[in-house]
Design a protein around this nucleic acid. Structure first.
Lengths: 216, 216
DNA sequence: CGTTAGATTGATGCTCATCAATATTAGTGG
DNA sequence: CCACTAATATTGATGAGCATCAATCTAACG
C-alpha cells in the first residue's frame, strides 16, 4: 500500500474531514489519534457508527461507491496517511491480493457494524456499555495500546451515548453504577477494566481466547 | 458471474442454510423467495440484520473472511443460485472488474447496515416502522415487485420487531396506529403504502428521486 | 475570575417491555 | 366434517427503563 501513499496530513480535534453524502478523491489511514464516524438525522440526532482508533482505514467507501455513508470527525489531533481514490482501479487490476484485502476489510467492517447493531437493538444500557468497553479494550490491546491494564479512550460521554443509542444522562448514571460495582472505570480519557470476566458476562459476550471475528 | 455458478438449490421455509460463526464452501444468490439474516445472543434475543429479498447475495463474507457473522434463514421457499467460495481467488486474479463489484457490494452492505443502525439507535417506534416500510418498498419496487402500489412482504410481525429492536407487542400496536392513520397497511404478506410522503416525513428520510445510496 | 465544555445528580413522566388473555387462521387426525 | 393443535395476530393492564428537563459542579482557559 505504501507505494500509493500520497501524503501525510494532520488534522486538529473537531475537524470533519470526510462528510456524509459527499464523495472524496482521497481516503486515509489513521496513523495517530482518535475520532468518530457518525451519521446525522434531519432532526439533529446523531448515531456514531464506529469509534476511530489508530490503524483504521477511512473513506474507502467513497472510493468504491462514490460517496460517504457517514462523516468522520477527529476527536483528538490526528495524523492521517493519505491515499488517492483514483488509484484504486490500479490496485484491482494489478494487485489481486491487495484487492482481496480491501474486499476483506469492507466485509469485516460490515460484520463489526452488525455487532454494534445487535448491541443497540437487543442489549439494555449496562449491557451496552459493558459490551462497548470489552470490545474497545480488545481492539486497543490488539494494537498495543494497553499499559498497566488501561487503554486510552479520549472521548466524551456524549460520544459513547451516541454510539450506543442512549441519552447522555442515562449513560452517565450507568457508568457510575459500573464504577461503583468495581467493574470498570473510565475517567480522564483512560479506560480501566477491573473485572473483565464479570464485564464480559454482563455484556453477554464469550470471553474465550479464540477470536472468531476480524479485529480491524 | 454465471460461469462460476455451480448449481441451483431449493430450500423450504424455516431452513437455516448459513450459520453464524461457521464457514461455508458455498455462497449464494437468492433467485426467488424471502428470508432473514440474523444474529443471536446467548440469552436468546435475536437481531435481524437484514431482510433477504430476491436478488440478494448471501454468504460472501464466509468466502472472504472464513466465517459468517450471522445466520441466514428462509422465510418462504427459496431458490438459490450456488457459487463456489474457493473460486473467489480466481475472480480476484482474473476479473478485476468483478472483483471490484464484490468490494462495492461489501461496502454497500456496510452502508445499509449503518442506515439500520441509525434507525434502531435514534428513531422511536413509529419512525422505525415508517423507515422500514419506505426502505422496503423502494427495494422491492427497484426489482420490479410492486403491483398496484403493493409489494410482497411475507414476514411475521416478530421479524419486523427483531429487525427494529422492538417488542412484538409494541410493534403490533404501532402497526395498528399507522394503519388507522391511513398511512400504510401490512396484512396477509402484502405491504400497501397509502401516503408515501407522510410516511417518509415521519421516518425522517428525504423522499427525493435522487437515490444517493446503492440499492442493493 | 468570568466563561465554557464536560461531568454529575435529582426529579418527573413517557415510551416501550413484559405479562397475560383472547382471537384468528390454518393444518391435522379422528 | 368437526374437534384439536399450533402459529400468528390482537388487545388490555402494569410497571420498569430510559429520556428529558433542570441544576449544580468541576476543570481548563483566556
Amino acid at each position: 500500500m505504501e507505494r500509493f501513499k500520497i501524503d501525510e496530513l494532520t488534522v486538529e480535534a473537531g475537524t470533519t474531514f470526510l462528510t456524509e453524502g459527499q464523495g472524496s478523491p482521497l481516503f486515509f489511514t489513521a496513523l495517530q489519534g482518535y475520532g468518530v464516524r457518525h451519521k446525522t438525522l434531519p432532526n439533529g440526532r446523531r448515531q456514531i457508527v464506529r469509534l476511530v482508533f489508530p490503524g483504521d482505514l477511512l473513506g474507502l467507501e467513497a472510493g468504491l461507491t462514490g460517496r460517504m455513508g457517514h462523516s468522520v470527525e477527529a476527536r483528538t489531533r490526528m495524523i492521517l496517511c493519505v491515499f488517492d481514490s483514483a488509484r484504486l482501479d490500479v490496485v484491482f487490476r494489478e494487485q489481486p491480493d491487495r484487492a482481496r484485502d480491501l474486499a476483506w476489510l469492507a466485509t469485516a467492517e460490515a460484520q463489526l457494524l452488525g455487532d454494534l447493531l445487535v448491541t443497540v437493538g437487543q442489549r439494555d444500557a449496562s449491557q451496552r456499555i459493558a459490551w462497548a468497553f470489552v470490545s474497545i479494550r480488545r481492539r486497543l490491546a490488539a494494537i498495543g495500546l494497553e499499559r498497566d491494564g488501561a487503554v486510552p479512550l479520549p472521548f466524551r460521554q456524549q460520544d459513547l451515548a451516541d454510539t450506543l443509542g442512549l441519552s447522555l444522562v442515562h449513560t452517565n448514571k450507568t457508568l457510575a453504577r459500573l464504577r461503583q460495582a468495581g467493574l470498570c472505570d473510565w475517567t480522564e480519557g483512560e479506560l480501566r477494566i477491573h473485572d473483565l470476566p464479570a464485564l464480559a458476562a454482563l455484556a453477554l459476550v464469550p470471553l474465550d481466547g479464540a477470536e472468531p471475528r476480524p479485529l480491524m
